[in-house]
Amino acid sequence: MTGLAGKTALVTGATAGIGQAVATRLADHGAEVVVHGRDSRRGAELVSAIAGRGGRARFVAADLSVAGDVERLAAEAGEVDILVNNAGVYELAPTPETSADSVDRHLAINTRAPFQLVAALAPGMVERGHGAIVNVSSTAATSVAPIGAAYAASKAALDTLTRYWATEFGGAGLRVNGVASGPVRTPGTEPLLAAAGDAMDQVTARGRIGDPEEIADVVLFLVEEHSSYVNGAVVAVHGGERSLLPG
């Protein structure tokens, strides 16, 4: 599996959950992966695991809530052919219980950091005449709920940026797409899933929560040449929406 041989990929939020699955999948297919996260220990463990599978990876730590750290991450990543904006924060609370700091944190990590990374790295892709960017979004951007408005707004903004960037850079050989993930079982979502019990398995037509690897497979498709005519799409990967109507 060497379809990405010779390419370098930066995956943000890669030390757990969907990001870890994406980083591993891209490395398995030949890409050299720049693994981003905040925890150096977990970063080293993932780099070692990828090497153990015959892949290549290196770790760069950065706090995406700090604009200067995002700029440093882009500089240390260097020339990349693939950018996966996966890192995100979600604090699901009603609006009156959501602080201004929480709103700022959602927008900084989920929206501003991807904007900065694209601004820094897309020009190099354009100069080289090729590149692929995938923004990992959420079905929360389009499916409303009584809580989590700040999170949903930050992801809806990312979906809009995806379409704008696809138009801005598409004529220069760079493709930009999104993956709107439904509920997925990760270390971060485990407490929520545990509290909801079996009820969470009924929120999708598939009758179960998704696995990180299922999201990673769609990301892989969007960065490979098999999807060469896909640009500006936000692909919903949620197991199918279940109707709330009786019968």
Rank of each mutant, 00 (worst) to 15 (best):
residue 4 L to W: 07
residue 75 A to F: 14
residue 157 A to I: 01
residue 229 Y to M: 07
residue 131 G to Q: 12
residue 16 A to P: 02
residue 69 D to P: 10
residue 177 N to M: 08
residue 242 R to H: 09
residue 98 T to D: 09
residue 106 H to P: 12
residue 48 S to R: 06
residue 39 D to A: 03
residue 242 R to P: 04
residue 192 L to D: 03
residue 244 L to Q: 14
residue 31 A to R: 14
residue 42 R to D: 00
residue 236 A to E: 12
residue 181 S to I: 13
residue 145 A to I: 00
residue 108 A to T: 14
residue 183 P to M: 01
residue 19 G to V: 01
residue 220 L to A: 10
residue 185 R to A: 15
residue 203 V to F: 01
residue 74 A to K: 08
residue 30 G to C: 06
residue 29 H to A: 09
residue 172 A to F: 11
residue 202 Q to G: 14
residue 123 P to W: 02
residue 202 Q to D: 15
residue 68 G to L: 03
residue 113 A to S: 14
residue 207 G to H: 03
residue 166 A to I: 06
residue 140 A to R: 05
residue 110 N to G: 02
residue 123 P to Y: 04
residue 189 T to G: 07
residue 241 E to G: 15
residue 187 P to F: 03
residue 35 V to Q: 14
residue 123 P to F: 03
residue 87 A to H: 09
residue 211 D to Q: 01
residue 11 V to L: 10
residue 110 N to R: 15
residue 87 A to T: 13
residue 24 T to Q: 09
residue 9 A to S: 11
residue 39 D to L: 01
residue 3 G to S: 08
residue 107 L to C: 04
residue 225 E to Y: 04
residue 153 A to W: 01
residue 228 S to I: 02
residue 146 P to E: 04
residue 152 A to E: 14
residue 153 A to G: 11
residue 205 A to K: 00
residue 223 V to T: 04
residue 234 V to A: 13
residue 65 S to Q: 11
residue 225 E to T: 07
residue 110 N to V: 04
residue 163 R to S: 07
residue 123 P to Q: 03
residue 195 A to I: 15
residue 200 M to G: 00
residue 194 A to H: 12
residue 177 N to H: 06
residue 162 T to K: 13
residue 240 G to Y: 12
residue 64 L to N: 10
residue 119 A to L: 07
residue 81 D to L: 05
residue 163 R to Q: 05
residue 183 P to G: 02
residue 211 D to L: 00
residue 136 V to F: 15
residue 131 G to D: 13
residue 80 V to Y: 09
residue 7 K to M: 07
residue 224 E to V: 01
residue 217 D to K: 10
residue 7 K to E: 12
residue 57 A to E: 08
residue 122 A to V: 03
residue 89 V to R: 10
residue 125 M to I: 03
residue 45 E to S: 12
residue 136 V to S: 04
residue 91 E to Q: 15
residue 28 D to G: 15
residue 109 I to H: 13
residue 170 G to A: 03
residue 168 E to Q: 08
residue 35 V to I: 07
residue 168 E to V: 14
residue 40 S to M: 02
residue 140 A to C: 04
residue 102 S to I: 00
residue 196 A to W: 05
residue 142 T to A: 01
residue 189 T to V: 00
residue 98 T to F: 00
residue 146 P to Y: 06
residue 1 M to H: 11
residue 31 A to N: 11
residue 156 A to M: 08
residue 162 T to D: 13
residue 185 R to F: 01
residue 167 T to C: 08
residue 244 L to T: 11
residue 181 S to G: 07
residue 232 G to Q: 05
residue 140 A to M: 07
residue 217 D to P: 09
residue 52 G to C: 11
residue 126 V to C: 14
residue 237 V to T: 05
residue 73 L to E: 13
residue 61 A to E: 07
residue 208 R to I: 00
residue 59 F to M: 04
residue 191 P to V: 00
residue 134 V to W: 13
residue 185 R to S: 15
residue 20 Q to N: 06
residue 151 Y to I: 08
residue 75 A to Q: 13
residue 123 P to R: 02
residue 54 G to T: 11
residue 35 V to K: 15
residue 70 V to T: 08
residue 246 P to E: 15
residue 1 M to T: 11
residue 208 R to W: 01
residue 112 R to N: 03
residue 24 T to S: 13
residue 105 R to Q: 12
residue 72 R to D: 13
residue 120 A to R: 09
residue 16 A to D: 15
residue 158 L to E: 07
residue 165 W to Y: 12
residue 65 S to C: 08
residue 217 D to L: 02
residue 24 T to K: 06
residue 130 H to A: 15
residue 57 A to Q: 12
residue 29 H to C: 09
residue 127 E to Q: 14
residue 231 N to H: 06
